[in-house]
Design a protein around this nucleic acid. Structure first.
Lengths: 214, 214
DNA sequence: GCCAGCAGTTTGTGATCACAAAACGGCACT
DNA sequence: AGTGCCGTTTTGTGATCACAAACTGCTGGC
């Protein structure tokens, strides 16, 4: 019982859920790793009941895989599944960006520029989880303006499913191609150019995933 | 304890989950209706534990809403949320149809034609749930060929969120506009025409939802 | 050397219970 | 008649336990 943070004011299963979700989304758990309810429960100092709820909730979102016998593990994605999830990203995210465009004021764009610089630093520092997290934050910051919570939720579901695989991606990419793509997105936002915004987002989203598939 | 079917070979929470999911997706529960864990547990002759799991799982999929205090209810959708979900359908489903097109052999198309006839009958008979269920079956039959399980899962999530609201839609539409749209889809499939298939699917998907929003 | 079988252990499932917070209903007071 | 208050009831949360199925590893036979 390592006694984790124990976020106050939250139910036990909620805080466990958030921790796990963040870990998975940020690639801090390797694909195919297996978890046990008792293990998670003990690690967070709670009983099995809230651990089961958190796990099932994540399984419903595709973040975890349940074997027929109920065993829990992070999914190890086959190439065609990765392709599919990449296609989903390039379907959903340009739409979100497009909807956010009319509402993207300059303070937001400045913030996105800051995040881009930050990403460069994290990548150079070799902080994989930090890189993934901040990269997603870049996108989420924009998409929040779309006023489309259901659409954003679906996009996050896709991120979640790709999470464990993301770490493998990070190990392979070494040049900061993210910066270029992000700068294109920022430029399109500043110009108010919807067509090139969609294009830039699609490119940013697929560029990384493409090199993961062979 | 009404002793529901009790599907054999399935865990308690799984069968409860499936029943509830089907009911919600087919519009058999009105928007805003509230459920209780003890109520569901008793209705299915199980304890609260599996009832909670089923409910949380459905909440994670957006099929149910949990109040801050944990109360469970079906969501009552505002117009802008309906518009968003409709946009998601018209984003995802043409893509699914397009991916299914090369794999749609004539036996499948014949089956879809049968289903269309069946839908007409159900609509004339005033069977709302049957109408919704069969209508979704029409779409699912096609999309299964897309070999894109993650994409299909997202689409079903959207259906689920629209479920309770669907009944209200059914009450308003009386002319079988579905037939026309479905026939267009079938024609495009037979012709192998991707562009008009995408168009027909988008039209079918949005035509019903549009009249719901005013 | 390999594989089948068996015992011990791990692990998920579901029931039950104690508890606290929220919702409800009635009552008195203004 | 409306409104604030308090006791009762309802309802979700989480811990614990018994149980069965799955997994593990070892052993003996071929």
């Amino acid at each position: 019982m390592t006694d984790r943070p124990q976020d106050p004011g939250l139910t036990a299963h909620e805080s466990l859920y958030r921790h796990l979700r963040a870990q998975i989304m940020h690639g801090q758990i390797e694909p195919g790793a297996s978890l046990t309810l008792r293990g998670l429960a003990e690690e967070f100092g709670v009983s099995m009941t809230p651990a089961r709820e958190a796990v099932r909730r994540l399984a419903a979102e595709g973040a975890l895989k349940l074997s027929p016998s109920g065993r829990v593990s992070t999914p190890a994605l086959a190439n065609d599944r990765i392709e599919e999830l990449a296609a989903l990203r390039s379907l959903l995210e340009p739409e979100l960006a497009s909807r956010a465009l009319p509402r993207a004021h300059s303070a937001l764009i400045d913030r996105m520029q800051d995040i881009t610089v930050q990403i460069d630093g994290l990548m150079r520092a070799g902080d994989a989880a930090g890189y993934i997290r901040t990269n997603l934050e870049f996108h989420r910051n924009l998409y929040l303006r779309a006023q489309a919570p259901a659409m954003l939720a679906l996009a996050e579901t896709v991120w979640l499913q790709l999470g464990p695989t993301m770490r493998a991606l990070y190990a392979r990419l070494r040049r900061p191609s993210a910066s270029e793509n992000h700068n294109k997105i920022i430029a399109a936002l500043r110009a108010g150019d919807e067509a090139s915004l969609r294009l830039a987002v699609r490119q940013d989203v697929t560029s990384g995933l493409r090199m993961l598939m062979r």
